[in-house]
């Protein structure tokens, strides 16, 4: 690592860190819908909760593509994104999303009005669950795969995706299921509450590890972490991700009563924290100066 301190520069002709600016709120929303929707389907499928599965499926199969279409430069050619299956995580994710949309829909239809035999319905369930799991984690791989932005280039990124996906899934399952299937299963309700609290704690630990790793991996990573924790984006990160996303969600789920109001507040707090983190990860992604080791 070079000892010289460089500034963050814009489009001016100076050497320094540069912000990534091509991925913004649309991609952040797509990631959010993909992770939370797949997480909701995953958790709901475990309990056979059709309403939750359907909402999760809608988020992955309708909301996420909508956000992606808004982002794409030439959306009419979107189908081409499946061509790079060998290398590109976007292609792998798209493949999983298509599988999930198809098999998830068949599974839900079969649950609503059974028309498949036992073996076939098991197969459809497992394909949709595997595709769903893939949809949750691939987004992390999309970010971690490239070496250009030190903050993202972390093996913890897929774990963050998985944790937030499951956390969102449990939150939404509690919200939509507390006055339906969870009424008959108070022990499951209690378990989901504790699981959510545990995931909030785990998410906190992962996030600390992630930031710690980024800060000591490269100068650009350190600069991004400083932006998040001390400089321009610190107020947003501290308030929305840490206070609202972690503290408020954790406290409310642990001590709050099981009521629509409290569960709604938990869901809003958790999802705000999730979206805020994704937006901030995009905002604070920095490129290293091209010749950091120049001496002249």
């Amino acid at each position: 690592m070079d000892s010289k301190v460089y500034n963050i520069v814009g489009e001016e002709f100076q050497l320094g860190y540069r912000h990534q600016d091509v991925w913004g709120w649309k991609i952040a929303l797509a990631f959010f819908f993909g992770e939370v929707g797949a997480g909701l389907f995953f958790i709901s499928a475990f309990f056979g909760f059709l309403k939750g599965m359907f909402i999760g499926w809608l988020m992955v199969s309708v909301c996420k593509p909508t956000a992606l279409f808004l982002h794409l430069g030439v959306p009419i050619r979107f189908w081409r994104a499946i061509m790079g299956l060998k290398n590109s995580w976007i292609s792998k994710g798209l493949f999983a999303s298509v599988l999930f949309t198809g098999f998830g829909a068949i599974h839900m239809l079969n649950l609503y009005r059974p028309f498949l035999g036992e073996g076939l319905s098991e197969l459809v369930l497992w394909i949709s669950i595997i595709a769903c799991f893939w949809v949750i984690i691939y987004l992390g791989f999309v970010l971690s795969y490239s070496p250009s932005i030190a903050l993202w280039n972390s093996g913890l990124m897929p774990v963050i995706s998985l944790t937030y996906g499951l956390l969102g899934g449990i939150t939404m399952t509690l919200l939509f299921g507390h006055n339906s299937f969870l009424l008959d299963m108070p022990e499951v309700l209690r378990m989901l509450k504790y699981l959510e609290f545990g995931l909030v704690l785990f998410c906190g630990v992962i996030l600390v590890s992630f930031l710690h790793g980024a800060a000591y991996m490269s100068n650009a990573g350190r600069r991004s972490v400083i932006l998040l924790l001390k400089e321009r984006y610190a107020p947003w990160f501290i308030f929305f991700v840490l206070i609202v996303g972690f503290a408020m969600t954790g406290v409310l789920i642990l001590v709050g009563p099981v009521s629509l109001g409290v569960l709604l507040a938990v869901a809003v707090a958790e999802l705000i924290g999730d979206v805020a983190l994704k937006l901030l990860l995009f905002k604070t992604g920095l490129y290293e100066p091209v010749l950091t080791h120049s001496h002249f």
Partner: peptide
């Protein structure tokens, strides 16, 4: 990272973009 294989190497090692295949996802930019 290109999901459409719009970015490719020519035989003499030049990296080019086939604008007929690019969907503008921005993955290459990041």
């Amino acid at each position: 990272v290109c999901p459409t294989k719009a970015t490719y190497h020519t035989d003499d090692g030049i990296v080019l973009v086939d604008e007929k295949k690019c969907i503008g996802c921005g993955a290459c930019v990041t």
